[in-house]
């Protein structure tokens, strides 16, 4: 079989996952897209392992490890999202904007008024 088939499929899957990560609003959907990207990598690993006929089967072993780590990652990621949701009442990525430069954009995070004024004062002092 031509190696280009799995390689191109992996590349395209990766880019689809990339689009999901960048475009999705719900953070759980972002996590799903991350899974897609990981799987694309896994496909590459398996394909190259088969191609090289590695005596140690490094590609397949690594794939197994990646799957395991992905499982751990999804567990931790989900609990973080849950925590954020519990604290903020939302899990939307584009509303978690505490890193915004409030001087340039104004305050758009109503739940953080107090902290924003403190940051405003700091920003003015620094400017």
């Amino acid at each position: 079989m031509h190696l280009v088939y799995p390689a191109v499929l992996a590349a395209l899957l990766f880019c689809v996952g990339l689009y999901g990560v960048l475009a999705r609003r719900n953070s759980i959907l972002v996590l799903m897209s991350v899974e897609l990207m990981l799987n694309a990598v896994n496909l590459n690993l398996v394909a190259f392992d088969v191609w090289l006929r590695d005596a140690l089967h490094g590609g397949q072993a690594l794939t197994l490890f990646t799957i395991t780590i992905a499982a751990a990652e999804i567990g931790i990621g989900l609990s973080i999202v849950l925590l954020v949701f519990r604290n903020r009442g939302t899990a939307d990525v584009d509303r978690l904007t505490d890193l915004v430069d409030s001087l340039a954009h104004g305050t758009d995070n109503a739940s953080d008024d107090g902290r924003d004024t403190v940051r405003n004062a700091d920003g003015k002092a620094a400017a």
Partner: peptide, 15 residues
Amino acid sequence: DADSGNRWAALAVAV
């Protein structure tokens, strides 16, 4: 509103 406002930038980058 499943997609964020970043959609077109994301599409460009992905393509």
